[in-house]
Amino acid sequence: MPAINLTASLNDNFDFIMHVSKESGQPVEQCYQCGKCTAGCPIAFAMDFSPHRVLRMVQLGLKERVLQSQAIWLCACCSTCTSRCPRNVDLAQVMDCLRGLARREGIPLEDRARDIAMFYDCFLNTVKDNGKLYELGMMLNYNLKTRQFFKNADTGLAMFTRSKIKFLPAKNKNHRDVRQIFQRVKELEEKTK
């Protein structure tokens, strides 16, 4: 691994560090790297960078590396890290902020991260269209996008026999309201970008 030029990364990415601190509302400089977040993280085993390293990368302004990481997407938002952090840093919020940033910056995602982001998209698309989640639509769409046409088909069948699946979405009366929420959020975020 080549040496990281810290003067350059802190010069170039100082805005990034400030942005993460501000948007997540978390004092990232407070972290003293004790690793209690990593120690208790249920997903750390599957991550490319353990949680404390994600925060370290933010502290040092290693923007590209952290935004391209699998770890920020694998975070399951369980907040175990947050509840045990001795420095009162809400790492789950930082992860949230990094995911949002990665999307807005159009970072290309791979492997697990890509699948997770795609799932989130499929989920939210049905919400955007119907005001509520439409599970079957979401699953079919996800399978289509990930080109695994029969993934979870057995689940679907089992769900069907227990009348746990609905073929048609339950549409919200004012789904225009919800669509407006999506539109206005996009509008605001493009303005601040």
């Binding site: 690793g35 977040c37 990593t38 120690a39 045990r84």
Partner: peptide, 26 residues
């Protein structure tokens, strides 16, 4: 180097779950 996140019972032993931050691993 790392803090312990949880201690739980494992039979008559205690399972100590921590991190080695130098390794970057649980």
């Amino acid at each position: 180097r790392g803090r312990v996140s949880k201690i739980s019972r494992l039979g008559d032993k205690l399972l100590v779950r921590g991190a080695d931050t130098l390794l970057g691993s649980q």
